[in-house]
Simulated assay, not measured.
Amino acid sequence: MSKANFWRGVVPAITTPFKTDGSVDHDFLARHAIEMIDAGCTGIVPLGSLGEGATLSFDEKLAIVKTLVQAIGRRAAVIPGIAALSTDEAVRLARECEGLGAHGLMVLPPYVYSTDWHEMGGHIKAVLRATALPTLLYNNPPAYKTDFKPEQIAELAAEFPLLQAVKESSGDIRRFAGIRALIGDRLVLMVGMDDAIVEGIAMGATGWIAGVVNAFPAESVALFNVALKKGTNAAMPLYAWHLPLLRMDTVPKFVQLIKLMQERVGKGSERVRAPRYVVEGAERAEALRQIDHAIQTRPTL
């Protein structure tokens, strides 16, 4: 099976917008997704960490997928994140998303519980068997405490043809070389940490599941394209402008900070769902200083 085109390019990990009453704002969600596709993004990943997936009910997750499929399903791919406390729930979520018309899945390890490859591999394999959709494996040990090593990723790739890509967020750029040394170009490599995008492309990544793109879609697509087509040196001026923003994607309050960016540029609200609170005090002042500087020095594309 050929690799799906939507694993390549810039794929936003879309934030989940909330109304003042705390419910999901589906109208804004649809408009926001369309705007990012209009800017050149190739797909949308809802229900991930940036999407506050752990705070969403099962039914809210399905409603979000339905909204996105209806909004952009004919123009680009909807690739929901599949994460849950239990394997049974993850399998059920994957199947329901397939039934709603999702084009692919981003498969995560279970929330909270993490042990050895026997159990974590078993969880991933159960989800991979659950549908006929192409899938992306998400490796983010800082967030999920499960680290899928290159040898384990190679094992999954050998067993499951529908596994087509890996989103690497370990923070170790050497992982791309490690994966390629074992399985060549069997999987599409995707960068999952915003402030490693240029380095990741230099190591063979051809896709970026991005966060700051929610606030700066045109600039994010431009950075990806110049790094991929013209190389590191050509990308550095735009990368240097981006980096203070991109680094906000790799800290504990990345959801609050990226939503603050969105509100500052008129692309959403900073409202988050508890246990998160909007950033305050000196932390907020410093974030706004950097965001406002980026807005004032915004490059002409």
Rank of each mutant, 00 (worst) to 15 (best):
R95I: 09
C97I: 02
E98N: 05
E98H: 04
E98G: 09
G99M: 03
G99R: 07
G99N: 08
L100P: 08
A102E: 04
A102T: 03
L105W: 04
L105S: 03
V107S: 06
L108Q: 10
P109I: 13
P110F: 03
Y111D: 14
Y111A: 11
V112A: 14
Y113T: 12
S114R: 15
T115I: 09
T115S: 12
T115F: 05
D116Q: 09
W117K: 07
W117P: 08
H118N: 11
H118Y: 11
E119L: 15
E119T: 12
E119P: 06
G121Q: 06
G121H: 07
G122I: 09
G122P: 14
G122S: 12
H123Q: 10
I124E: 13
A126K: 08
A126Q: 07
L128G: 05
R129T: 09
R129L: 13
A132P: 05
A132F: 09
P134T: 15
T135C: 15
T135W: 06
T135Q: 11
Y138H: 15
N139G: 12
N140D: 11
P141Y: 04
P141T: 06
P141A: 04
P142M: 05
Y144W: 14
K145H: 13
T146Y: 10
T146K: 05
D147K: 00
D147I: 04
D147H: 15
F148C: 00
F148L: 02
K149D: 12
K149S: 12
P150C: 05
P150W: 01
P150K: 00
E151G: 06
E151I: 07
I153L: 12
I153P: 07
A154F: 08
A154P: 09
E155R: 01
E155A: 05
L156G: 06
A157I: 02
A157M: 04
A158T: 12
E159F: 03
P161R: 11
L162C: 05
L163I: 03
L163V: 04
Q164S: 08
Q164V: 05
V166Y: 04
E168I: 07
S169M: 06
G171T: 06
D172P: 15
D172W: 13
I173S: 07
I173K: 10
R174M: 07
R174E: 13
R175T: 08
F176D: 08
A177P: 11
G178S: 08
G178I: 11
A181N: 14
A181Y: 07
L187S: 12
V188L: 13
V188H: 12
V188G: 14
M190I: 13
M193D: 10
D194I: 03
I197S: 07
I197Y: 08
E199L: 09
E199A: 10
G200V: 15
I201T: 06
I201N: 10
I201G: 03
I201S: 04
M203H: 15
M203Q: 15
T206F: 02
W208D: 01
W208E: 01
A210T: 04
A210I: 04
V212S: 02
V213T: 15
V213R: 04
N214H: 00
N214A: 00
N214T: 00
A215N: 00
A215T: 02
P217F: 01
S220F: 02
S220R: 01
V221I: 00
A222N: 02
L223T: 02
F224G: 00
F224R: 02
F224H: 05
N225A: 01
V226L: 00
A227S: 01
A227G: 00
G231S: 00
N233T: 07
N233D: 10
A234K: 06
A235N: 01
